[in-house]
Structure formats: structure tokens, C-alpha cells
Design a protein around this nucleic acid. Structure first.
Lengths: 198, 198, 198, 198
DNA sequence: AATGAATGAGGATTCATTCAT
DNA sequence: GATGAATGAATCCTCATTCAT
């Protein structure tokens, strides 16, 4: 049984602390010291284990995306029909885990910052393509060749609601948002079905 | 001939420079010196006319919102039917002016930063409410009591596409996006119309 | 009748403004702009007429000393006996004019700053020597060879009270201070007279 | 052996450096960098340990006052009669420690600056009251109800001599000054004693 | 494994001063 | 005679990062 080093422990603590602090401040204007303190370690240690501020951010982004991915995968595993799969992706985006204010805040900050950070950009691009691909794949049996378009529309709605949430203080009802998107999905299926019939 | 004051000239130049620089860097991590240099003045002058970095940002945000508002107002003035009005708002959001990469980038950055800046938040909240109110008002004759919901969906799609655009380098075809949103609009009207019929 | 230029008018206004502002702030940390605004002119004009910030300060110091000197001269002119002359100097130091809070504040600031400003130092040294010389000259008939010592003591008391005044907010009763110094004078004369008798 | 913290060491060095630099320049127009360099550290470290420029100044003032207080306390401990106590206070004010040119310079600068700095003002007010209280208490057995007045006169003389010293380059003979003040004390006692006799 | 100590680099801001009009 | 316009030079302060222990 190999003795487990402190590295993974510290890294996890620091990543969580980073997300927490970004959520608290609402911005990426967070100092390494703040993050380290929140993680209960010295800033020197943060550098030691994470390499630097940018790496902390990338790790945090990666962490958020991983959570997201796992949650979607789990939901997909329980889905059988294409319709269920699409709904699973939508619902996962507003799951308890992904919907935490600090997660949303960090997410958006990284999203925007991606413009100026190559690694973050890569990460997000990969994630975005995967989501779109997942959506498109599941949508194709339902809407045929319109799948890419509608997948893009659903993704936009999800992102858009995230963005709006960052602006509001009052906790929004997730169900309302989910229903709205699913309505869009239903209408798209319906319209397409009709067209296909003809 | 009264000697014209430089203040408005400089302020405009600085605001434009700020937007340009934010777009160039992709982040609000822009120094006053960079903005000033881009505007062709010293950083001291930037402070003199703008008051400080935060004020520059707020002025830039205000500027963007004003452009937006004027463009929507202009488009609304040319619209007669409710349907046209809704479309006008959607199209305005992707007009040449509002769609400039640097504008979109600055916009998103401010959007996210609003979390940590009271004045920016106020500004955005006002703007957001106005758009929603406009949309809802025009939608009501078309979809009845579902107007708020659908307005919210349209707004989310607009914001979501903006967000996605920040991530892509390749120029996106605006028409595709506009069509997608209008399709959502059409489907919503259609479905609602059916319900009303019954 | 030569047309009088603006120079003396502006200079006087600026010097008064400088004293006022120093008194208001309590420190020499006053900007040229503040002084200029208080004088009702632009800061550029202040430089034009005064030459620079240091020159403004020197002129202000000179102004204060001139007021002081004139007041003492006037009081001395009305005095006939040595005793009266000494009292005149003491009283003049606490006259309405010299005792204005802003004057005292400016005075002390310059006094301390003299350490770092050659012109101010010269000015103060000259003034100080003159006061001491005046005091000593008038004291000699009263206390003989102890005149320099006692002159120095009286001067110290005057300066010391000024210093203390800068620290207090509540307006101090000048008479109390004057009496205290005159008491010192009286005792010195008395003691010396006795000694001389023997 | 616990690793000793650098904080107290650095703070002391910085406070001493501040006093030194103020004395050298003759003004509070000293940059943090100058002080830091004189202390042998970076300006960043100065901020780290002291908090900021104002805190440096307050700490320096506090340091000077502490030296002063301790010296007076020590001298008072060796005194038995009221007369000795008063003399002890006077002599302490001109002790080798308190009489260093840079100390005097810093002292005066703070004294004047107190007008514009609440913490400094508090500090000085407390100190001033203590000195006066000490003097008054010891004087009462000697001069009765005139104690407050005479205490105030002695304090003024001390402060006044300090002020004058800031203006002179040549080292002044402390003994002369001390004698002068003590003479004032003696005369006051004598006169009062006579009055009491009657 | 962990941290206190330390700093270089950089950024916002202020201000005396100059100049063209 | 007067000023708005403009800036270079400082200065305070912060922070990511390094290093010795």
C-alpha cells in the first residue's frame, strides 16, 4: 500500500478554496494568499503544489468541468431513449452541484477569461464540443438534420441562464429554467416531426 | 466661437480605447496606461478626465448600453406589428454595431464583473429589465400570459450566443443565430396560438 | 500715474490663500491647485506670478513675518521705557493678527520646514535674531548681563505656547499666556535687581 | 529553540530608520522607499510589517514618546523631593537620548503634523497631559495653586527650546537651557513662597 | 512537508509644472 | 492677463513568486 502523499490532498483543498474565493469575490481578482488561507495553507505551499496562480485557475476550471462531466455521464447512464438523454443533459446543467452560486460564478469567470488564457480556452472548447456532440447525437433521432442547430440553441439557453444568474441575488427556481428549455426541446421535436411526416 | 472643451472629446476617445483594449486583451486586466496610450493621451490625463479606472469601466459599459439602446429604439420605431417588434429586438442584438468582437468581449466582461461592482450592476440590471420589459410587452399579444417566460427564453438565447462567441475565433454567421432565435419565437407563438384556439 | 499691474494683487491673493489653506489642512501638504482655487485663479497663473510652489511658501512666510515685524514696530513706537518695550514685543506676539489659527499653523509649519528649505531658514534666522536682539537690547537696562539669557527664555516661551496652540482645538485665552510670560519677566527683573543691589 | 520572528526586529529597524530619515531630510516628506532602504529592506517589506506609511509615522512617534516616558520615569524614581522631581522632568527633556537632532526633528514634525493626523494627535495629547500632570503634581507643594500655570510655563519653555533647536545647526549647550528653565522654576518657587508667608 | 521572509515588478493615482492659445 | 490642456515624474501600495530553513 503506497503511502499517499499530501499532493492530492492539498491540490483538492486549494482548488476548492479557489472556487470558493472566486465565488465570494465574484471575480478572478483573487490573490493566491486568499486562496491559500481559505485552504488553510501558506501561499508558498500553494505555489509548491500548484505551480502558480494560472495553474490554480486551470485546475479549478478542470475540476468544475469534471464534476459537470461526471454528472452528465451519470444521468446519461440512467437514460434509455434519446429524449431522456437530452433531458438528462439539460437537467444536469442545473443540478444541485453545478448550480452552486460559487460554481456558477467561477464558471462564468473562466468562460470569459478563456479569451486570454490558452489552456482555459482549450479546456472549454473541448467541453463545449463534447456537450454539443452529446446533444446533437441524441437529438438526431428526434429532429433529424436540424439536430446541430437545436443543440446549439439549447446550449445557448443553458449558458444564457447561467449568465443571468450571475446578475441576480435572489435564488432562482431551477425548475422554471429547466422547463423552459425542455419546452423549447419539445416544440422543436414537434415541429420537426410534423415536417418529417409530410 | 467658443473654444470647444476637450473633455467630451477625450472622454469619448478614452471610452472607445477602453473597449478596444478590453477586446484586445479579452479581460478587464487592462491598465489605465494601456487605455490612455490607445487613446493617444497620457495616463494622467485619463485620470483627469475620467476620474479613475473604475469610472472608465463604468463609462465604457454605459457607452455600450447606450449604443444598444439606441439601436433597439431605432429598430422599434420602424416596426409596426408586435411580431416585428420582437424581431427587431432580436436582430438589434446581433447588429453590426453590437456584434463587434471587442464590444461583445467588453460586454461579457462587464456582465461578469457586475457581481463585484455596484454601479455596473445597477447599470446592467436596468438594461436587462428594460429589454425584458420590451420583449414581454411585444410578446403578450402573441403568446398571452406566457410572454414573460418566452421573453426570458429569448433573452437567455441572446446572452448565451454572446457567451459562446467570446470563445470562438472564427467569425460566426449572425444570420444563423438570429434565425435560430426567431424559430424559437415562431414555435412559441404557434404553440400558444393553438392553445388559444381551443 | 503708472497703471498698476495685476502682479501685486494676484500675489497678495495667492499668499493669503496659501496661509488660509495651510491653516485649513494643518500641513504643508497643500496643492498649488488648492491654493489657486482658494485665490480664485488658475494654478497656471499661480505659477506665472509666484514662480513655483516653494516660492509661494517663502512669500507666505515672508508675509507673516512682515505682519509680525510691523506690529512689533508699531507697538515699540508707542513704548517709552525698556519695560514697556519688552512687554510690547510679548503682547505683539499674541496680537489678534498674529494669533489667528491659520497664521499660527502656517508659522509653525514653516518653522519646522525651515530645516529643509534654505530660503525659509534664512528668513527665520533673520527674524529670530531681530527679535532676540530687540528683546536683549530692551532687557539690558533691566537685568544687565543676563539680558541674552532672559531674552532667550522669553522667546522660548512664546514659541512654546505657539506650539502648544497648534495641538489644541479650544481657543486659548491669550491674556493668560501673556501674563505668564510677563510674570517671568517681572521675576527676572526683580531677582536681578536684588542681585544688582547687593 | 523557537525560531524568532523577524517582525519585532524589522519594525524596530524601520522605526529607527524613519526617525533617522526624518531627521536627515528635516521633514515628513520622506518616502517609504527611503526609510526601507535605510532599514536595509525593501519597501514592500516595510509595508508588510508596518502596514503603510502612516503607520510607520505613528509607530515612530510612539517610539519617541516611549523613550521619553521611560527616561522621565527613571529620573523620577531617583527623585525624592518635589523639587527634585520637577528638575528630573526638565533634565530628562534634554537628556542625551531625547536631544538627538533627528529625534528633535522628528518630534517637531509629528507635533505639527498632529493637526492633520488623528492618531498622532491622540498620542501627543495623552503625552502632553501626562507631562503637565506630572509637573503640576510635583509643583503643588512648592507653589500651591499656581502649579498649573507654572507647569504650563515650564512646558512651553521646553517646547520652545526644542523648536529653536530645529533651526540651529550648531550644537547647543543643553546645560544652558536646563539652567534657564530651572532658574524660572526657582524664581517661581521663591515668589510664591514669599506670598505664602504673608 | 511546510512556511516565514523577502523582493521585483507593476499599477493606480497625484501633482508640480509647462505651453499654446 | 489668464487658463485649459497636457504630461513626466514620483509615490504608495499590492502581489505573485522565490528561497532558506
Amino acid at each position: 500500500m503506497p503511502k499517499i502523499g499530501m499532493k492530492p490532498i492539498r491540490r483538492e483543498a486549494l482548488v476548492n478554496a479557489a472556487i470558493f474565493e472566486i465565488g465570494r469575490v465574484g471575480t478572478l481578482d483573487v490573490t493566491v494568499s486568499q486562496i491559500a488561507k481559505q485552504a488553510g495553507v501558506s501561499s508558498a505551499l500553494a505555489h509548491h503544489y500548484m505551480g502558480g496562480k494560472d495553474e490554480i485557475f486551470v485546475a479549478a476550471m478542470r475540476h468544475i468541468l469534471t464534476i459537470y462531466r461526471l454528472e452528465i455521464q451519470g444521468a446519461l447512464a440512467l437514460s434509455t431513449t434519446p429524449r431522456e438523454r437530452v433531458e438528462a443533459i439539460i437537467r444536469s446543467s442545473f443540478s444541485k452541484q453545478n448550480f452552486r452560486p460559487d460554481i456558477v460564478s467561477a464558471w462564468l469567470n473562466f468562460y470569459v477569461k478563456a479569451n486570454a488564457s490558452a489552456p482555459t480556452k482549450r479546456l472549454l472548447t473541448v467541453y463545449h464540443k463534447r456537450i454539443l456532440s452529446n446533444l446533437t447525437y441524441s437529438l438526431r433521432p428526434l429532429v433529424g438534420d436540424n439536430a446541430p442547430k437545436i443543440a446549439s440553441g439549447i446550449a445557448a439557453m443553458i449558458d444564457g441562464f447561467y449568465l443571468q444568474l450571475a446578475l441576480k441575488n435572489k435564488p432562482t427556481n431551477k425548475d422554471t429554467l429547466v422547463h423552459l428549455i425542455i419546452e423549447y426541446l419539445d416544440m422543436s421535436i414537434e415541429r420537426n416531426a410534423i415536417k418529417n411526416d409530410i
